[in-house]
């Protein structure tokens, strides 16, 4: 895809500081969730986003306020990136009434449509055709919106994703397919094919992006979104990223080797990458520490609230089920 001046606009120190704060919020949130999981306060599935923070942070910066997004079960980072308070997410993880889904969804089932985020979907790949539906609705209503639809390298070879490529291309849907390729598709997955080639077979333009570099992500996101807004149809971004933790806390399968992760963490960590840039611009250690401290405090408070909040009332069991008109 051709680059342009808007997409390649230089980053300001203020923006870099914002990226650092946003990525640290995800990092510290996930670390805390891991702790609470270990303490038995979070049950079942809990898929952490540590290592992939630059992807959702960069694309959120590329998106406009009314744009939409949707993702899989690995959704905490996306919820934080669209501005949901950490306490509401953490309380959902602990299954409390003050959780974003009233304690009925858990880690994989949260949505904030008023912020443009449409979930949190627990079945691998299911969110991709749904994401096309968001874009379809916008095209139908003539809304100038782009839908960012996230999925992993495991889902990327599914039949329903191929079907969605075909539908998106046929109807020229304003959507950006975002493959978060952490190269850890569950064991037994077919040997990885070139994922962009699967989309190219349907005529969808794509780009491979360094998903550990928030600026590269933002620039690619702007190019893809511009393409959609210009009515030139869907685009695909393959984000090469690296997840530090296992598939889920209950299922560490698909983890990279410890050496691998240590090396990548040292050389390519997305948070460190931004810190380094800020240091290069003369931001002092005090300022950097203040940002981290404020985030740690916010997350500690969220965890405290999530521990102390009451469980949902028994009589909420049948809420949100009466789907026919009385």
């Amino acid at each position: 895809m051709p680059s342009d001046t808007a997409a390649d606009a230089p980053v300001t120190t203020e923006e870099l500081t914002g990226f650092l704060r946003d990525m640290l919020l995800i990092r510290r949130f996930e670390e805390k969730a891991g702790q609470l999981y270990g303490m038995g306060l979070i049950g079942g599935f809990c898929h952490l986003y540590i290592g992939q923070e630059a992807v959702v942070t960069g694309l959120s910066a590329a998106a406009r306020p009314l744009d939409r997004s949707i993702t899989s079960y690995r959704s905490h980072g996306h919820l934080l990136a669209c501005g949901v308070p950490p306490a509401a997410i953490m309380a959902e993880l602990t299954g409390r009434a003050s959780g974003l889904s009233g304690g009925k969804g858990g880690s994989m089932h949260m949505a904030a449509p008023e912020r443009g985020f449409f979930g949190g979907h627990a079945i691998v790949g299911a969110q991709v055709p749904i994401g096309a539906g968001l874009a379809f609705a916008d095209r139908y209503a003539g809304e100038d919106r782009v839908s960012f639809v996230y999925y992993g390298d495991g889902a990327a070879q599914q039949g329903q994703i191929a079907e969605t490529y075909a539908l998106a291309q046929m109807w020229n849907l304003p959507m950006v397919f975002v493959i978060e390729n952490n190269r850890t598709a569950s064991p037994g997955s077919p040997k990885q094919v070139e994922l962009t080639a699967l989309a190219a077979a349907h005529g969808i333009a794509s780009e491979v992006v360094d998903g550990m570099d928030v600026l590269a992500v933002r620039q690619a996101g702007r190019r893809a979104a511009q393409r959609c807004r210009a009515g030139r149809g869907p685009a695909l971004l393959e984000m090469r990223t690296h997840r530090y933790r296992g598939h889920s806390l209950a299922d560490p399968a698909g983890q990279h080797s410890r050496d691998d992760t240590r090396r990548i963490r040292a050389e390519r960590d997305p948070v460190e990458h931004v810190r380094r840039r800020l240091r290069d611009r003369g931001t002092g250690e005090d300022t950097l520490k203040r940002i981290d401290d404020a985030v740690r405090e916010e997350i500690a408070e969220a965890a405290r609230l999530a521990r102390d909040a009451p469980e949902p009332r028994d009589d909420s069991l049948f809420d949100h089920l009466a789907m026919v008109q009385e």
Partner: peptide, 14 residues
């Protein structure tokens, strides 16, 4: 599968 998901997403979007 694609059409079903797409219709559901369109419903989520109004």
């Amino acid at each position: 599968q694609g059409v079903a998901g797409l219709a559901i997403g369109a419903a989520f979007a109004g």
